[in-house]
Amino acid sequence: MPGRPTSGGDGVSRVDLAAQQAALLRALLADGPAPPGFDTARLRVEAQVLRRKHGRVLAYQRPELAEQLGERFGPLFAEFAAGRPKRDAERSGAYADAFVEWLIEGGHVAKPRRGWVSRLRRR
């Protein structure tokens, strides 16, 4: 039938599958509740792994920032990511910009000279 969501081999509609996937992403990226059938503890471990991965990507994208922060980079990024998880459709560059702004607002790095933030965003 036109307009009717088709189902997969197990009888789950595409709409239901999309909703289940969205719930899983919320659990992994935004500290949402574990969807039915998923182990909460395992999802938390996976969420931590994803946050560390995001931190490595960010350090690769902004090596000058990682160098400036040195040993503080990991703990500061972990603190930032705990309060501001990466959104499922968010570009990693936008997430890096949000981290830089968080660092500046928190006094962890000095506010850059005029124009530096706009150059950072153009990358």
Rank of each mutant, 00 (worst) to 15 (best):
F73H: 01
G93K: 06
D88R: 15
L65S: 07
F80A: 05
S92N: 14
E64F: 14
L103C: 03
A96R: 14
L65T: 05
A89G: 09
K86N: 10
A89D: 15
F99L: 02
E71T: 07
L65R: 06
E101R: 15
A82M: 07
L65Y: 05
F80W: 00
G70N: 01
L65D: 04
E64G: 05
D88Q: 15
P85F: 00
D97R: 02
A66S: 04
Y95T: 06
E90V: 00
A89E: 15
F80C: 03
E90A: 07
L76I: 02
A98T: 09
A78S: 08
R87N: 08
A89W: 13
A98H: 13
F77R: 02
G93I: 08
A81P: 02
I104E: 01
E105N: 11
D88T: 15
R72M: 04
S92G: 13
P85R: 02
A78M: 04
I104M: 07
R72E: 08
L103P: 01
E67V: 12
V100A: 12
E64Q: 15
E64K: 01
Q68A: 12
E90T: 03
A89P: 01
G74F: 05
A94G: 13
L103H: 01
K86D: 02
D97H: 00
D88G: 08
R91M: 14
R72Y: 11
F80M: 08
S92Y: 13
A94T: 12
Q68I: 10
R84L: 02
E71R: 09
G83D: 01
L76R: 05
K86W: 07
A81T: 06
G93A: 15
Y95D: 09
E101D: 14
K86M: 11
A94K: 14
A78W: 08
F80E: 10
L76M: 07
W102G: 05
A66C: 08
A82G: 09
A78Q: 12
P85I: 07
S92R: 14
L65P: 07
I104Y: 06
E64Y: 05
A96T: 07
A78H: 05
A66N: 06
A98L: 09
